[in-house]
Design a protein around this nucleic acid. Structure first.
Length: 145
DNA sequence: GCCAACGTTGGC
DNA sequence: GCCAACGTTGGC
């Protein structure tokens, strides 16, 4: 079981829209970057990810779960592009801002900090636990089914 | 709205 | 296969 981070502009696809989809979830479509696509191809059912709002928010706002492994992106005719499906699992009681993340020594190596442009990225178990704690998520690394 | 960083494209 | 040009992303 691995951890990830999905980045979205709230204007394009917001956490609220994700929540509104419920357990049906939604394709994480529109990724046109090989690195990001390759990470999605590595994802397994039940993997968890942070939902990050870029631009106006710049904060981790929720947790999603992978509910379909990599498949062709329905929004592209180009067979190169795949994506997974995710569903909203839990909102962060307190969103964790980019500023707060950057302020922490133990999160300095996060991809979010180091390569801000990558839209789908891996998160270590340590980083996951720290951000869950910062966000006020009780369950942390387990039990969010 | 600007600009830096980065990825992709296309000419050679 | 290199590299310049260009487009896009995202923080500020």
């Amino acid at each position: 079981m691995r951890y990830w981070l999905f980045k979205s502009e709230p204007d394009a696809w917001s956490w609220d829209q994700q929540v509104a989809k419920g357990d049906v979830g939604e394709e994480w479509s529109g990724v046109r970057n090989y690195q990001a696509r390759n990470f999605m191809r590595e994802m397994a059912l039940g993997d968890l990810g942070f939902f990050y709002h870029s631009q106006t928010d710049k904060a981790v706002v929720g947790i999603v779960e992978v509910i379909a492994t990599s498949h062709p992106d329905s929004t592209s005719d180009d067979p190169r592009w795949d994506c997974v499906d995710v569903k909203a699992v839990e909102v962060l009681p307190r969103p964790v801002t980019l500023d707060a993340i950057k302020a922490r020594e133990d999160l300095a190596k996060m991809v979010l900090v180091r390569n801000s442009r990558l839209s789908v990225q891996p998160v270590t178990a340590e980083e996951w636990a720290i951000i869950c704690a910062m966000g006020g998520v009780e369950s942390g690394s387990d039990g969010v089914s």
